[in-house]
Amino acid sequence: KKRTSIEVSVKGVLETHFLKCPKPAAQEISSLADSLQLEKEVVRVWFCNRRQKEKR
């Protein structure tokens, strides 16, 4: 599977969401993915990776 490069503008939206809610529910991930025209899996993994980054 190819890596998905995420646009800077999209990263901004994801970051804003992350600050409000670092662990979104599946439904939130779905609606976020739809509005950003990304796959749900890509958004889910982004949040996973972002949470791990917080720990470091």
Rank of each mutant, 00 (worst) to 15 (best):
H17D: 00
V10Q: 10
R51S: 05
F18I: 01
C21H: 05
E28K: 03
V13A: 11
E39C: 07
W46E: 01
K11R: 11
K23W: 13
K53S: 08
E39D: 13
E7N: 15
Q27T: 08
T16M: 09
H17E: 10
I6F: 07
L14N: 05
K40Y: 12
R44A: 10
S5W: 10
E7I: 08
S35Y: 07
V42A: 05
V13F: 08
Q52D: 14
S31N: 14
K53I: 06
D34I: 03
L38E: 03
S5K: 14
H17M: 12
K20Y: 02
K23D: 14
L14Y: 00
K23L: 10
K40E: 14
N49Y: 03
R3S: 14
W46P: 00
S30T: 11
V8A: 15
V45M: 12
S31F: 11
D34W: 02
E15K: 03
T4W: 06
F18Q: 00
A26M: 13
R44V: 01
K1W: 13
L19V: 07
H17F: 13
V13I: 09
N49S: 08
L19H: 12
E41N: 10
E7G: 15
C21T: 08
V8R: 15
R51D: 01
K11G: 04
V43N: 07
A25V: 06
T4Y: 09
S5P: 10
L32K: 00
S35D: 13
A25Y: 05
E15S: 01
C48F: 14
E7D: 15
A25D: 15
T4A: 11
V45N: 15
Q37K: 08
C21S: 11
Q37M: 09
Q27R: 12
H17L: 07
L19S: 10
S5C: 14
S5R: 12
V43M: 00
K40L: 07
Q37S: 11
P22H: 06
L32E: 04
R50F: 03
S35E: 13
V43C: 02
R44G: 06
C48E: 15
W46I: 04
P22S: 07
K23N: 15
Q52K: 09
F47D: 05
C48T: 10
Q27A: 13
E41S: 07
E28W: 06
K23G: 04
E28C: 05
E15D: 00
F47G: 03
S35W: 03
L38W: 01
S9P: 08
E39A: 06
L14W: 01
Q52S: 09
A26P: 14
P22E: 03
